[in-house]
Simulated scan of single mutants.
Amino acid sequence: MAGNDTHLIVSFFLVGIPGLENFHCWFGIPVCLLFALTLLGNCIIIATVKLEPSLHQPMYFFLCILATNDMCLTCSISPKMLGIFWFDAHWIDFDACVTQMFFIHTLCIMESAILVAMAFDRFVAICIPLHYASILTTPMVIKIGLAGLSRAILMTMPCPFLVKRLLYNTKFVIHHAYCEHMAVVKMASGNIQVNRIYGIFIALSVTTFDLGLIITSYIKILQAVFRLSSQNARSKALGTCVAHVCTILAFYTPALFTFLTHRFGKNVPPSIHIIFAILYLLVSPAVNPLVYGAKTKQIRDRVVSLFCSPKQKF
């Protein structure tokens, strides 16, 4: 188990779901289904937007960015998780663990940034519709996407270095299904206060800042909507926001539960915490295409025509 590297331990043992090891084969079924649904649903969303000229709008470009991010996030954890649940492949190399941790947290921060961008898109479309085309141009959408990705990378970049500076020489069993930052840090023998503080700072700063922007956008949106004289116009304006609101709830609700129980829920069984941590990363990417497919008429109609009219050419 030892090497010449500073951390000494060269691999970790991922338990999976502590206390429920006998049921791992059954947990693998929903994980596999969610993985497959995420890949299929998001590929359909991206292909639909690409092939339908009427969907070449900022709102759907952001949706494609979200779909790509969701697939990357799911691919970063599902294969290894299925290996644990179905093939008892519990061991993971130290560097592979740190790499997985980096991608998971980077993509989660990126997901939050995309939700902010989509809220801004709805704000501009509803509150200042006459300037929508001039504000949210394709180059601006690209800049917003790159800004979100840059922020995510820069905020997560210190984590691998902070983890690698620690000494791991006795504990190597991670009571988790994937390499989550604090779960890995707790294996260290030295002082982990810096890691704890940095982890809390990132989680709180991203959540409060992004949620603050989203809430502010929707307050402005509601104010603009209720100023409309027509009930039909109000319903139509709010209808364009329903899918986005569902996506926000699907992402932030389990995220907040996971964050709070991981740090303050000492009485919460570890198995419950791990299950919610898994749901946090797997459910939202799988649900998003279904939500947007059901709530967005243009996407729904195009997908229906794709499967119901096989002779139709794009």
Rank of each mutant, 00 (worst) to 15 (best):
M1G: 09
G3L: 01
V10A: 07
V15S: 13
V15D: 14
P18F: 10
L20H: 11
N22W: 11
N22H: 14
F23N: 12
F27C: 09
G28Y: 06
L33Y: 01
F35G: 02
A36E: 00
L37C: 04
L37N: 01
L40C: 09
L40I: 11
N42T: 01
I44Q: 05
I45D: 03
T48I: 04
V49D: 09
L51W: 06
S54N: 09
H56A: 10
Q57C: 06
P58K: 07
F62H: 08
L63A: 08
L66C: 03
L66D: 09
T68Q: 05
M71I: 12
C75A: 12
S76Q: 05
S76W: 08
I77F: 15
L82W: 02
I84W: 07
W86I: 02
F87Y: 14
D88P: 01
I92N: 07
F94P: 08
C97V: 00
F103K: 00
F103V: 00
T106P: 00
I109G: 03
A113S: 10
A119G: 07
D121K: 02
V124K: 01
A125N: 05
A125T: 05
A125H: 08
C127G: 05
P129Y: 07
H131M: 11
V141E: 06
K143T: 10
A147S: 14
A147F: 02
R151Q: 13
L154Y: 09
T156C: 12
T156I: 10
M157I: 11
P158V: 11
V163D: 06
Y168T: 12
H176G: 11
A177M: 11
C179M: 14
E180C: 07
A183Q: 11
K186G: 03
N191F: 07
N191W: 06
Q193A: 13
N195K: 03
R196K: 12
Y198C: 09
F201I: 08
T207R: 01
F209S: 15
F209Q: 11
F209E: 08
Y218R: 07
I219W: 08
I219H: 10
K220I: 03
L222D: 13
L228Q: 15
S229I: 02
A237I: 08
A237T: 10
L238E: 01
V242A: 10
V245H: 10
T247S: 14
A250T: 03
Y252T: 07
Y252N: 03
T253N: 06
T253P: 01
T253A: 11
P254H: 06
A255Y: 03
A255S: 11
F259G: 03
F259V: 04
H262F: 15
R263D: 15
K266G: 12
V268E: 12
P269M: 12
H273M: 08
F276I: 13
A277N: 08
V287R: 04
V291A: 14
Y292G: 02
Y292C: 01
Y292S: 00
G293W: 15
A294S: 12
A294L: 14
T296H: 11
R302D: 09
V304F: 04
S305F: 02
S305I: 05
S305N: 15
S309P: 00
